[in-house]
C-alpha cells in the first residue's frame, strides 16, 4: 500500500531561528562575475508586503547542468550548489544573488523552481520564476502556453539593471500561479 504523505503546517513567525543562516540568499557572492540579483516582494491579498515569508530557490547552472554539490549551508564562496533561501524584510522584499540558470534541455525555457512559506500560509506553495528573453522558448513552454496571458505573466520575471524582479502575490486579481505536482493531494 502506498503510504500517505505527512501533512504540512505553517512555517510560523519564528522560522528564522531554524532556517536562516549566514549567506543563505547568496548562491554566488555579491559582485562576482555573472552575478545577478533576483528580487521581489511577497504580497498578501490586500497588497501588503508579507514581512514573515521565506522564499527558496533551486536552479540549474548557466549551462543548464544541475549541481550535486553540498555546501548550501556553509558557503565557501566558490561552490555553486543551486539552492538558496531568503526571508522577507519588513516590506515583504526578498533578494538573492545568483547566476541566471540555463535551460536544462536545449531550446527549453529557463526557470528557477520556487517554494514559498509564510506565517499565515498553512502549507508551502510551489511556483516557477521563468527568465525573460528567449521569447521562442517561453512561447513553446508547456506550462506557460497553457495559461491565459494574465496568469502567464505572473510566472515570468522582469529584467532590470541588476538582474530580475519576481513578485509573488499570494492572493488577489494578479495572484501568482501556484503549482501542484503529480502525487500531491488536497
Amino acid at each position: 500500500m502506498t503510504p500517505i504523505a505527512t501533512p504540512g503546517q505553517t512555517v510560523g513567525p519564528f522560522f528564522h531561528l531554524g532556517l536562516s543562516y549566514d549567506r543563505d540568499s547568496e548562491l554566488v557572492p555579491p559582485g562576482s562575475p555573472a552575478a545577478v540579483v533576483l528580487r521581489g516582494r511577497v504580497l498578501d491579498g490586500d497588497g501588503h508586503g508579507v514581512p514573515d515569508a521565506l522564499v527558496e530557490i533551486w536552479q540549474a547552472r548557466p549551462d543548464g547542468t544541475i549541481a550535486v554539490e553540498p555546501g548550501s549551508l556553509r558557503r565557501d564562496g566558490w561552490t555553486f550548489t543551486g539552492f538558496g533561501r531568503a526571508s522577507t524584510g519588513p516590506d515583504g522584499t526578498y533578494a538573492f544573488t545568483t547566476v541566471a540558470p540555463g535551460p536544462t534541455e536545449p531550446g527549453r525555457a529557463a526557470f528557477l523552481a520556487v517554494a514559498v512559506f509564510a506565517r499565515g500560509l498553512l502549507n508551502r506553495l510551489f511556483t516557477r520564476a521563468y527568465l525573460p528573453g528567449d521569447t521562442a522558448a517561453l512561447a513553446a513552454d508547456p506550462l506557460l502556453s497553457a495559461l491565459p496571458e494574465h496568469a502567464r505573466r505572473t510566472l515570468v520575471a522582469e529584467a532590470d539593471g541588476q538582474g530580475f524582479v519576481f513578485d509573488i502575490r499570494l492572493r488577489g486579481p494578479a495572484e501568482t500561479v501556484f503549482l501542484r505536482y503529480p502525487g500531491q493531494r488536497p
Binding site: H48, T104, G120, L122, L170, R171, V177, F178, R180
Partner: peptide
C-alpha cells in the same frame, strides 16, 4: 490565513528536470 491563501486552485503540472 485570510489574506494569505491563494484564491485559485493550484495548477497541475508535470515536474521538469530541475
Amino acid at each position: 490565513s485570510l489574506a494569505r491563501h491563494p484564491g485559485r486552485a493550484a495548477y497541475d503540472v508535470d515536474p521538469e528536470t530541475i
